[in-house]
Each structure stands twice: as structure tokens, then as C-alpha cells.
Amino acid sequence: MELTPKIKFLGLTFDVTVMIGTVITALLVILFVLLLTRRREMKPRGAQNMMEMVIEFIRGVTNMMLEAKKAEKYLSFAVTIFLFVLIANLLGVIVMVNAEAHGEIPLLGITHEGLQQSHEISWFKSPTSDINVTVAMAFAIALYAHFAGLFKSPRRYFGHYVQPYAWMLPLHIIDELAKPTTHAARLWANIFAGEVLILILRAGTPYLTAVPMFAWIGFSIFVGVIQAYIFTVLAMVYISQKVADDH
């Protein structure tokens, strides 16, 4: 396993690789969207078509969960999540920057114990292959869902915990904790396992691992797209469970 440079600041540990990854991903999302939406026309062509396709695709997701008028409110949020996760997943397949270190670097938190494990220092990888990023995203979405439900109708929100029977309260609490946990672990584990297998294949003989490598990179692209979609769908499911006015 490769090491990551870490900076300690005010008692917190910052992972430099993750910060570089998230910043580059966010900048790329902004750049893509700006480039694809320049010179908008009523009759779209070229780049604008592509952006409209993405938005229509996500509109299909939000309309599935909520009624059309309310769904429009969450559309931009869902598109942002989708584009961020999609580009983050795909970046790790395309670019991986690893450097080699042979001495200790105290500033970056590269210690002697770490170097015994591995000499490789990762400078760029998928931000979503780090569990902190996905946990932060999933718990932020969960918090948003809870507050949206709470502000909409506190009575209904708290009433939900004792539905249909009061003794189900512990089950509901476990459910609310399990949702963001699996939401985060699902995305992280898929991308992380993919990157580790790429690293393992890279370490082998090229004559033996070239074909599996190509196959796995193709599969990684597929997994990245599917997981970005599923992350968005689940985020909308969790939000709609709290804000929908059904039953």
C-alpha cells in the first residue's frame, strides 16, 4: 500500500493527496460545466446537448423519487453530486501519480515506520478512494435530509421514528445510522478495491498482467460511472424519504 503525505495543523491531520484530488476534481467540474454551457441556444447543438443530456438523465432520477415540482428544487444538488463523484471516480482511472521516497520527510508525515511498509508516496489518486471523503459526503447528505425533514414538519419527522409501533424506535435509529455508513462505504470500497487491484497488477510482470490490466481498467470506468449514478440515486432516496408528502 502506498503512503500519503499528511500535514498536521492545529491538531488535525490533513491528507495532502485528498486535498489535491478534491480541489482538482472540483475545478474540473466547474471548468466542464462552464465550457459546456457557453453560448446557450434554444436549439441546442454540440456541447450544450451533452450537458442537457446529463441534466435530463438526473432529472429522471429526481422525478422518480419526488413529484415534478419539488424535484426541480433538488435537481441542481443531484447534478452537482453526480458530476463530482463521476469525475472523481474517472480521474483515478486515468491519472495516478506515485513518487518514491527513501528517507524520512517529517514535514509531510513520512516516518520511518511508514517507510518500512512502502516506499511509494501517492500524490494523486481518486479522492473517492479515500474513506474520509465519502464519509464526509454521505454524512453531509444525511444531515441535510434530516434537517429538511425536521424543518418541513417536526411532528411528522419525530413521529416517523415510532411508526408503526413505538418499540421499533431502536430499529429506526440503527436504520438512520446504517444509511449514511453504507452510502459512504459503497462508493469508497468500489473505488478503493479498483485502485488497489491496479497497483497489484502494476507490480507484476507486464507479460502476464497486461491483458488483465486492460480488462480491469475498462471495468473500473464502468464501475466509476455506475457508482456515481448509484450514489446520486441513494442521496435522492434518502432525501425524498424525509421530505416527500406521501401517505
Partner: peptide, 23 residues
């Protein structure tokens, strides 16, 4: 394919933690 993404998640979480333990 969407169901595949949902089904694959739990085994791959186990595999990812397995990798972490293995290394």
C-alpha cells in the same frame, strides 16, 4: 446494471476491508 451496482457493494466492502487487513 443498476441492481448490479447495488448488489456488488456489500461484497466489495468486505473485500476492501480485507485488503486493509491484508496489508
Amino acid at each position: 446494471m443498476i441492481a448490479l451496482g447495488l448488489v456488488e457493494a456489500l461484497p466489495i466492502i468486505s473485500i476492501a476491508f480485507g485488503i486493509l487487513v491484508l496489508f
